[in-house]
Simulated assay, not measured.
Amino acid sequence: MSSAATMSVSTRDTERYEEKDFGFWLYLMSDAVIFACLFATYLVMVGNAAGGPVPKDVFSLNRAAAETALLLLSSTTFGIAAVSLWAGDRSKVLLWLAITFLLGAGFIALEFSEFSGMIAKGAGPDHSGFLSAFFTLVGTHGLHVSVGLVWILVMIGQVFAKGLTAPVASRLMRLGLFWHFLDIIWVVIFSVVYLPGLL
């Protein structure tokens, strides 16, 4: 079945998808406001270590770089899945979504390891304002990535069961917006939190 035939929709359906896209953009903008508040809080609190560990004591540039590489690579693989979607190639969509999931899961594993290691060293979120703001900002992003991973699994199931129908394609494109948004937020975290803290 061709992609045009698979994803052909009526004018009414198109309007419905456009309304959902608009609503999703509103959600992303509200999420951006939340992250802006978390960044502002971190910048205010980063100097409040309460005599405990400071960023240089707890951050690892190698780990942060590995997390960044995994997440940016996952954005690339999702882009390939989107290209495969418009080409009407269901098997490649499934393959690249699965690879995106594995890369995202690797990111979460590294972040969990970072958090557990910090807590084991006595640098938990209850130790200082700096650590509380750090765990809140980075943890909120990690929670979003975890939700994205669940969403990817759901979409893999839908693509497998329903094929590349117009509703499935519409949901995949919104997932793409969400996933790329998280990549942008992480680049800002890397630039605002990790690099200044280590350099």
Rank of each mutant, 00 (worst) to 15 (best):
A65T: 15
K92Q: 14
L182H: 10
S170H: 07
G47Q: 06
P196E: 01
V33I: 13
T76Q: 07
E15W: 13
G52V: 05
K121T: 12
V193W: 04
L97Y: 15
L149F: 00
L137E: 07
V83H: 12
S74K: 00
A105Q: 01
N62V: 05
V46S: 09
V58C: 04
L26I: 06
T11I: 10
G47A: 08
T41Y: 07
V145A: 00
A87Q: 13
S116Y: 10
L110Y: 15
L149M: 09
A65G: 01
D31W: 06
T68E: 02
T136W: 09
I184H: 03
A105C: 02
A161C: 04
L71P: 00
A66S: 14
F178P: 01
W96C: 11
H127F: 02
G129R: 10
L153R: 01
V138M: 01
T76A: 12
K162N: 04
D31T: 13
F78R: 07
F35I: 08
V159M: 03
N62I: 05
A169W: 03
V159L: 02
V83L: 13
A36W: 14
H180D: 04
F115I: 14
A81R: 11
L131C: 07
M1Y: 08
N62P: 00
S10R: 10
S30V: 10
L143H: 06
L172F: 05
G176R: 05
V188Q: 05
P196Y: 14
I80Q: 11
L97P: 08
A65I: 04
L103C: 11
D126H: 11
S146E: 03
F39D: 03
V168N: 03
V138D: 00
M45G: 01
R90Y: 10
K20F: 08
Y27M: 13
T136P: 02
L26N: 10
D57P: 06
G52I: 04
L198M: 15
F39L: 08
S2T: 15
R90S: 12
E18C: 05
I189W: 03
A166L: 02
E19Q: 11
V44K: 04
S60L: 06
S74C: 07
S60A: 08
E19W: 14
F112W: 15
S84K: 13
A123F: 15
L97K: 10
G23S: 13
R174M: 07
F190R: 07
F22M: 09
S10T: 15
T6R: 11
G139L: 06
E114Y: 01
T77H: 05
A4G: 02
F112H: 12
L71T: 01
Y17W: 15
R63A: 03
I34W: 05
W186P: 00
S2D: 14
A5G: 15
A169G: 05
V33D: 08
V150N: 02
S191Q: 06
L175P: 03
F134T: 08
G124A: 13
L143R: 01
A50M: 06
A133D: 07
I108F: 05
L131T: 10
S170K: 01
T11V: 09
I34T: 13
L131D: 12
L199V: 12
G88R: 14
F112L: 14
Q158V: 03
A169H: 04
S116R: 15
